[in-house]
């Protein structure tokens, strides 16, 4: 088993028309033993910028701390809100610096740019950025998520449709992944507000 599968996780980010959605499951396990049923893996960076950290939980927390530190420093030094692509480069660099002793985490960034255009970006555990016009997935359920998203995603979905497509993709994907699940949290980011939905899911 790969160490990235030790704790279990599932994260999905999807683009819509002037909106993005990012969601995650809530399970934290130690292999097959479930330890926590309320372990969120998507974190708010700025109002319209979220980062999802699927992978080994210890690295998820360490990376989140380091990202928060870097973003706070950026805020103070540059006196402007960090943009999604700058954050992506920043995190990518953090990961590539540890090229020969990596964090076991494959971050996903979702947000709206300065012009309120949707932005999603994924990367592997050593910081190789990969962008997509439609969706980015990660975690132990990523194979399932790929299938769900390929089927459900369509262009120019509004926030409500996008929320339902992403939520259904996530919930159905984790139902066939033993390592993730126990409900989900989905953030719907629009120019005016971010709506956070806590979803009902199987508890097994």
């Amino acid at each position: 088993m790969s160490i990235t599968q030790y704790n279990g996780s599932a994260i999905v980010a999807m683009t819509g028309k002037n909106c993005v959605v990012i969601g995650c499951d809530k399970r934290l396990g130690q292999q097959a033993l479930t330890v926590d049923m309320n372990f969120e893996k998507v974190f708010r960076v700025k109002d319209k910028l979220y980062v999802g950290l699927p992978g080994l939980a210890t690295d998820v927390q360490t990376l989140h701390d380091r990202i928060r530190y870097r973003v706070n420093m950026y805020d103070l030094e540059e006196e402007r809100a960090i943009q999604p692509d700058n954050l992506a480069h920043m995190i990518s660099n953090m990961l590539y610096q540890k090229r020969f002793g990596p964090y076991f985490c494959e971050p996903i960034i979702a947000g709206l740019t300065e012009k309120d255009e949707p932005y999603i970006m994924g990367m592997d555990l050593i910081g190789c950025l990969s962008s997509a016009p439609d969706f980015i997935v990660g975690g132990t359920a990523s194979d399932n998520l790929y299938g769900m998203c390929e089927a459900l995603w369509e262009p120019d979905l509004g926030p409500d449709d996008l929320f339902r497509s992403a939520s259904q993709a996530l919930l159905n994907a984790v139902d066939r992944d033993a390592m993730s699940g126990w409900g989900a949290v989905v953030h719907v980011i629009t120019p005016e507000k971010t709506e956070t939905y806590h979803l009902q899911g199987r508890q097994d």
């Binding site: 109002d47 120019p191 971010t194 709506e195 939905y197 806590h198 979803l199 009902q200």
Partner: peptide
């Protein structure tokens, strides 16, 4: 979609 709880956060610049 079965929603347990919903939170809304308005963005400060809006």
């Amino acid at each position: 979609v079965s929603v347990i709880r919903k939170e809304v956060r308005y963005h400060s610049n809006a």
